[in-house]
Design a protein around this nucleic acid. Structure first.
Length: 872
RNA sequence: GCCCCCGUGGCGGAAUUGGUAGACGCGCCUGACUCAAAAUCAGGUUUCCUCACGGAAGUGUUGGUUCGAGUCCGACCGGGGGCACCA
């Protein structure tokens, strides 16, 4: 990579960028102070994990946020734009094991490095509010909130089958298992039965779902993903009386009622079997005396949860010595099975099988030779030939073979059967959610300690508030796998706060997603020791007006944060429901991949393009295979270091490139050509401005009474750019904003003022507008030019320019003339010319006349200021 | 399997409510400057026919609605994302 240089390139970005960063810093330009007289605007980008160095994804994310922050500041808002560190997490522990460096040291060193890097980008951040989640002054409040939630019944311990990541040696929340694999390690998760801490996110399931509709400034896609994740289903619980089906006449045991959940109570008359989850308590009870069942349960457990395995896994059942009495058909009983496809975590862990109208039940019934009765038929079906023997019918239709439901539609039948079940006391209409409670225990060291103490006598006891924070011990070892806290010689041994007897600290730590579920609240009062935040400050600044981050957090982080806010509301810490008013999800930064002949991946700087198309390896000139553009990742080496780009081209160039061309929500391809293009434009701008400056009148020169045509044209261009660009920034159309700025730059560049004094004045006006408009995007260059224009103030503190409305509309418009909808030519008309005039002018347009070939128009359609269509 | 999004020049992408398709940038071509190169500046650049004027076709394919479709509707093809034995 080489820096393009030229004798004309006088703009020294190195010196300039450092100088203005220092000025902003010293003058605390971006410090946010509560001021009720001013409207506030809270801009936040998802805070980084301090992994070592910033990457291009950060550069893109923070550039976008900074454009908004600087723009809103110019619009008169009191802007809060803070930065912090999502500092707990496994990579720190992995580094400890691999590099023998303490996680704390590793983390804080990374923070220092990355802070320097972020500062070199010239971001308008209020660094006085910086926080790190691994700091006890942060997590003490988190521990306190957890105790409050616990007290309010929102946190609890439960033994359950959980997802275990065998590589990271910890449990994972449901949201952290992607296609049956751990979200970080990609290792297939294992099932383990453990007692773990959970947060009751399901308590808010309905609200988390219904409130999505009110998040108007969130991407539709994210709301949809959350809605699917919460997964609301309407249906019924139905109670089936169990009886002994073993054939033993003497058995008198009362097996009680089996509760099942179904979304299709309308198909109850088609029931042919019952199925229990292998993990269902009743299955376990029966297994005690049945080695065959024990074996079956063990086999089911072996099958992984990976998508591929589940897809191919055959339906397996184990016949239990039980029959279930049909709640609606007197005298009818069906066989009860344990079945591998029934999930314990959903509904009641038990189902009724209706093979006629469910694919899984159908497959099961075929395998075990169970009856398949149709109870729903298509409205137009011939009932004599209609059959579900080959395949289930799962669409809407008309109920048949179902007594009092016959003839009804599916939805009507559902309502009617639920009413009947409730009447008879054998069922109940219910709503079921797919969402599970949030499992927050992690068997790891580098996280926030869970403030609980286990006592043999008192059970699990909360750590008293006065003893917070429960600090992580520093003296831990990483020489063995497992949780260093658990094997620490002294840390966990404490007295029970309740009885004073011997107790043991909880050695699990919190899921780090808790840390990021309230940091935006902490930014409103970062130094406060007595509480997570000051209520007044919090109510002034929150909610976040614009949140920006990757779509990969569409469910995890965003859903957890929405939950945490509600949990805080439940314990009267806030009255707010939602933390993020506006959300924008930015695309990834991609780059081509390169492979050497031996198959190894190559870094972009290890290759060279020859003759435009051929690519060779720099070191030995061997050919290189160019792969498609993919997300920058260390494993494929297609990464470009932001530091190097900023060093070679400057922060403004990096920022400008990030905003150009690609719409911000889409993936961006990083190319060398694109960067040099952005760099050249910075140089060109500086040249255009300094050249024009030689001609323009001084700042504050009186406005001319009259403008020449050329001057008016440039004024129009400049003022239209203000209006267009303002709308573009509001709509996150940064690529279009950039295109407008290119156009205005060209207009300024081509304006030749020689002898035209009004144009000279306009040249200054246009330059001033231009410099203000690029301020949010390339702040250093803008500040430099602002000063060159003769201002002593800081551009960062200047208001946004407003367009003169009169200059936004043209006197004449170009109207297209069409013949049968095809363009023939154009005519110039005064704006808002009457329809008759437009029609008259169009009918004599030469290209149209030729196209008409003497035919008479049948009809003429006139769209004012746009089009005249002549139909023959 | 279910749900959702997207297909526009060589490339990234523009295109209010249906109303002049290809803004702007990159790349490429030609020219100017230069001993030369780089940089810079000027012009050109959807395809086909034509010296030109001009004309024809054209937004994944296909059918439809309309005076008029990149935009709306149907079917299909291709790419991407989410969920996934959720009863």
């Amino acid at each position: 990579m080489s820096t393009p240089t030229s004798p004309i390139a006088r703009y020294n970005f190195h010196e300039t960028e450092a100088r203005w960063q220092k000025v902003w810093d010293e003058r605390q330009t971006f410090r946010a102070v509560m001021d009720r007289a001013k409207p506030k605007y809270y801009v936040l980008e998802m805070f980084p994990y301090p992994s070592g160095r910033i990457h291009m994804g950060h550069v893109r994310n923070y550039t976008q946020g900074d454009v908004i922050a600087r723009y809103k500041r110019a619009r008169g808002f009191n802007v809060l734009h803070p930065m912090g560190w999502d500092a707990f997490g496994l990579p720190a522990e992995n580094a400890a094991m691999e590099k023998k460096v303490h996680p704390k040291k590793w983390t804080y060193e990374n923070i220092a490095t990355m802070k320097t890097q972020l500062k070199s980008m010239g971001l308008s951040l209020d660094w006085s509010r910086e926080l790190a989640t691994c700091d006890p002054s942060y997590y003490r409040h988190q521990q306190k909130m957890f105790l409050d939630f616990w007290n309010a019944g929102l946190a609890y311990r439960k033994e359950a089958w959980v997802n275990w990541d065998p590589v990271d040696n910890t449990v994972l929340a449901n949201e952290q298992v992607i296609e049956g694999k751990g979200w970080r390690t990609g290792a297939p998760v294992e099932r383990r039965k453990l007692t773990q801490w959970n947060l009751k996110i399901t308590h808010f399931a309905d609200e988390l779902l219904s409130r999505l509709d009110t998040l108007g400034r969130w991407p539709e896609k994210v709301r949809l993903m959350q809605a699917n994740w919460i997964g609301k289903s309407r249906g019924a619980r139905v109670f089936w009386q169990l009886t002994d089906g073993s054939g033993a006449a003497s058995s008198k045991k009362d097996w009680g009622k089996l509760e099942i959940f179904t979304t299709r109570p309308d198909t109850l008359y088609g029931a042919s079997f019952m199925a229990l989850s292998p993990e269902h308590p009743l299955t376990a009870e029966l297994a005690l005396k049945d080695p065959g069942l024990q074996h079956f349960i063990a086999e089911c457990r072996k099958t992984g949860t990976a998508a591929a395995e589940v897809e191919t896994a055959e339906k397996q059942g184990y016949k239990l010595p039980l029959l279930a009495k049909h709640p609606l058909i007197p005298g009818k009983t069906v066989q009860v099975y344990a079945a591998n496809f029934v999930l314990m975590e959903y509904g009641t862990g038990a189902i009724f099988g209706c093979p006629g109208h469910d694919e899984r039940d159908h497959e099961f019934a075929i395998k075990y030779g169970l009856p398949i009765l149709p109870v729903v038929a298509p409205a137009d079906a011939d009932l004599k030939s209609f059959s579900v023997a080959q395949a289930p019918f799962i669409e809407d239709g008309v109920i048949i073979n179902s007594d009092f439901l016959n003839g009804l539609g599916v939805e009507e039948a559902k309502a009617k059967v639920i009413a009947r079940l409730e009447e008879m006391g054998v069922g109940k209409g219910t709503t079921q959610y797919r969402l599970r409670d949030w499992l927050v225990s992690r068997q790891r060291y580098w996280g926030c300690p869970i403030p609980a103490i286990h006592c043999d006598k008192c059970g699990v006891v909360p750590v008293p508030a006065k003893d917070l924070p429960v600090k992580l011990p520093d003296d831990v070892t990483f020489d063995k796998p497992g949780n260093p806290l658990d094997r620490h010689p002294t840390w966990k041994h404490v007295d029970c706060p309740k009885c004073g007897g011997k107790g043991q600290r909880e050695t699990d730590t919190f899921d780090t997603f808790i840390d990021s579920s309230w940091y935006f609240d902490r930014f409103t009062s970062p130094g406060l020791e007595t509480a997570p935040f000051d209520r007044q400050e919090n109510e002034y600044w929150m909610p976040v007006d614009q949140y920006i981050g990757g779509v990969e957090h569409a469910i995890l982080h965003l859903l957890y944060s929405r939950f945490w806010t509600r949990a805080m509301r439940e314990v009267q810490m806030t009255s707010r429901d939602e933390p993020f008013d506006g959300l924008f999800t930015q695309g990834m930064v991609c780059h081509e991949t390169y492979r050497a002949t031996d198959g190894t991946w190559l870094m972009p700087e290890e290759i060279e393009r020859v003759d435009g198309s051929k690519v060779v390896r720099l070191s030995d000139r061997t050919p290189v295979e160019v792969g498609r553009s993919e997300k920058m990742s260390k494993s494929k080496k297609n990464v470009v270091d932001p530091d190097q780009i900023i060093r070679d081209y400057g922060a403004d160039t990096a920022r400008w490139f990030m905003l150009s061309d690609s719409p911000p929500e889409r993936d961006l391809e990083w190319t060398e050509a694109g960067v040099t293009g952005a760099w050249r434009f910075q140089q060109r701008l500086h040249r255009i401005a300094t050249t024009a400056l030689a001609e323009v009148p001084p700042a504050g020169a009186p406005k001319p009474a009259q403008f020449s045509d050329a001057a008016t044209a440039l004024r129009r261009a400049a003022h239209k750019t203000i209006a267009g660009l303002t709308a573009d920034i509001e709509a996150f159309h940064f690529n279009k904003a950039v295109a407008r700025l290119y156009e205005l730059a060209s207009s300024i560049d081509s304006a030749k003022a020689a002898g035209d004094d009004s144009l000279k004045w306009v040249l200054r006006e246009a330059l001033e507008i231009f410099v203000r408009l690029i301020g949010p995007m390339t702040p250093h260059l803008a500040e430099e030019l602002w000063q060159a224009l003769g201002h002593r103030s800081l551009l960062a503190e200047q208001p946004w320019p407003l367009p003169e409305d009169a200059l936004l509309v043209d006197d004449t418009v170009t109207v297209a003339v069409q013949l049968n909808g095809k363009l023939r030519g154009t005519i110039a008309l005064p704006k808002d010319a009457p329809k008759e005039a437009a029609e008259k002018a169009a009918l004599v347009q030469p290209d149209l006349v030729r196209g008409l070939e003497g035919r008479t128009p049948k009809r003429v359609i006139v769209v004012p200021n746009r089009i005249v269509n002549i139909v023959v």
